[in-house]
């Protein structure tokens, strides 16, 4: 018994780091979320008033829904595109490594660089996309990509998808590499064409890679802040005001530390819940398949 307990001693350094840099800040935030702290001066205890405000106003609900919708779009597109490119590249071993590196490059760039590049591309008059459309004789398709409230969220989502497709593609390529070549050869001998081999053999065996990819991109996208902040600052007319933008705005725009903390706690709960539920569903599916 003593021996077994002594094993836990080895987890102490990790637990210390976790407690110091993760649990402690979360507790501090939780504590602050019950105050009206303004960054300086005294933190006055206001009880549940911050939370009361969040749940009694339509605007915060719609921001939460917007964040979830944005995540659904981005994660779905990342998963499908990543799978598509990985399936293609898996069948093209000659260009696989080069193409993987090329696809991954956007994910290595800073959000700020990507944000400003795409802000230029999206800009309504002389932006790259509209000029290209005009030059191709498709002037009718020109849009005010970031200025149109109905379109802005999808423009931002597209940038995020462009940035991280290489990331999911790399995860799926690793998944493909884990499938023994003989499985594919057996499928070929049995007359399965490329699509059938993908659909019936590779896709089910990619289960673990799908779980990893979906979980990581979901968590990343729910928390995303940089791209909408640089591209639209939450505008136009709140069309891209994700929860993270709201938090930053309250924190550094209006110095409502207490209220921003309450929003952060809500966001943490959402992220944890979504990640937990998703992981459970995907893992169960993996086991079945």
């Amino acid at each position: 018994m003593r021996r077994r307990n002594s094993l836990y001693i080895f987890t102490i350094p990790a637990l210390l780091v976790l407690a110091l840099f993760f649990i402690h800040p979360v507790l501090l935030t939780l504590d602050m979320s019950f105050t009206s702290y303004k960054g300086i001066g005294e933190a006055k205890d206001v009880g549940w008033r911050n939370y009361d405000r969040i749940f009694s106003r339509e605007r915060y609900y719609s921001e939460i829904w917007l964040t979830l919708w944005y995540t659904v779009i981005v994660v779905t597109a990342l998963t499908i595109l990543g799978l598509f490119f990985a399936a293609m590249l898996h069948r093209l071993p000659l260009i696989r490594n080069f193409a993987r590196a090329a696809l991954y490059t956007p994910a290595m760039m800073s959000f700020v660089v990507v944000g400003y590049v795409w802000q230029f591309l999206y800009s309504p008059l002389n932006g790259g996309i509209n000029v290209a459309l005009r030059d191709l004789g498709l002037g009718a398709l020109e849009q005010n990509w970031l200025g149109d409230p109905a379109l802005a969220i999808y423009s931002v989502a597209f940038t995020q998808i462009w940035m991280f497709t290489g990331f999911t593609c790399a995860i799926f390529l690793a998944g493909f590499a884990g499938i023994p070549e003989e499985i594919n050869e057996a499928g070929r001998l049995e007359g399965a064409n490329s699509w059938q081999r993908f659909r019936y053999l590779e896709l089910p065996l990619l289960g673990p890679a799908i779980t990893v990819s979906v979980t990581l991109t979901t968590i990343g996208t729910l928390r995303t802040f940089e791209l909408p902040f640089i591209l639209t600052k939450g505008g136009p007319d709140g069309a891209t005001r994700l929860l993270s933008i709201e938090i930053i705005d309250n924190l550094f725009g209006q110095y409502k530390f207490g209220f921003a903390s309450a929003l952060s706690i809500i966001m943490l709960i959402i992220v944890l819940t979504v990640a937990f539920v998703q992981n459970k569903i995907l893992r169960d599916r993996e086991d079945v398949s």
Binding site: E185, A186, L189
Partner: peptide, 15 residues
Amino acid sequence: DPAERGVAMVFQTYA
């Protein structure tokens, strides 16, 4: 193509 040859194969790793 493999499928058109009328052969079936048993692999070392069973596959």
